[in-house]
Design a protein around this nucleic acid. Structure first.
Lengths: 170, 170
DNA sequence: CAAAATTGTTTCGTGTACGAAACTTTTACT
DNA sequence: AGTAAAAGTTTCGTACACGAAACAATTTTG
């Protein structure tokens, strides 16, 4: 079943693990920074986004933090309970709820000096310009491949295509 | 505050987004594959791991799926309720709980022909050997930098170090 | 204009996810 | 042996996270 030669297989495994590491680390950092302000990770994200962009509708906010509306409703519920944000009906479109930072929320945003993503930006900045280009090029290639595979094999008939997919492993 | 020149900044942003895409896509694929077998993402992961490795203690399983014991307890509770696995006390060490696939669980594992990670392995395999080495080298470098920054700046005094960190952005 | 389709939000039910505390069994120490 | 420390698991409380259904306001259509 495994047709990759060992060293290649190890590379693949290590790359996957590194990507997973980078992602989970980003969440860990967010969480750690948030903890110091008595916030949760997602709450810190919301506070920082509202500070930078200004008021947003719930849907816009959901899109920014890549979560479903129903998830964000809960996050905002808890933040409103803590007095960090307020909900306001839009006068232009009364279906829309606008989320605004309160004074307390703004103060908190200021108190947290660093955005979680800054750590990654800083780390990436240690690469040479060429390395950065190369990284982006290769990651994009992988990304495109994943998208193609997903379209063909996962979204349609995983079962039928499984053998074929494994056949490509060599 | 932003000292990166635009093109570099865009590269950084794109790299971050690509990494986030690859990670979230991997969860989406897992979930989609799981859905077809009436499983959840983590449950599919557990079933596939047990199929390949064999029986594991709860702690070993937690480590494999990178989750806390308390999280896995819940996952196993639900899977046991569905008759996919059983808990057995280890005779060697009676503190230990061994998780075993039932016949139903094994059958399900067989029915799902492809492991979620296979998609990524396949995509990564489209890279040349040189590209793979280069990707791994660069990602490792980033990873090391992140670890170093985290040790120095996040785990200790984020507030004090924030300015300094931003200064490194150029 | 009125019914229908659409858009934005919330509610509900289920499943993670995590840390702290509680519990059980084992190991280490005196 | 007897107590203390450690290891493995579960319980508890809280916070996401998501999809489906419910609800409200707006826009589209006949």
């Amino acid at each position: 079943m495994q047709k990759l030669e060992p060293s290649i297989k190890d590379d693949v495994q290590q790359i996957l693990e590194t990507i997973i590491y980078l992602y989970t680390e980003s969440r860990r950092i967010t969480k750690e920074l948030a903890r110091r302000a008595q916030l949760t990770g997602p709450q810190l994200t919301v506070v920082k986004i509202l500070e930078q962009i200004g008021d947003l509708s719930l849907s816009e906010l959901s899109e920014k933090i890549r979560a479903q509306n129903s998830t964000v409703t809960g996050i905002i519920d808890r933040m409103e309970r803590e007095g960090l944000v307020v909900r306001e009906r839009s006068t232009a479109d009364r279906r829309v709820v606008i989320i605004k930072l309160t004074a307390k929320g703004s103060q908190l945003a200021e108190d947290i000096p660093i955005e979680p993503m800054k750590v990654f930006q800083s780390a990436l900045s240690s690469l040479t310009k060429d390395e950065m280009r190369e990284l982006l090029r290769i990651l994009s290639k992988v990304s495109k491949r994943v998208k193609a595979i997903v379209r063909r094999d996962v979204d349609e008939a995983v079962g039928d295509k499984a053998k074929e997919l494994e056949g490509q492993d060599r």
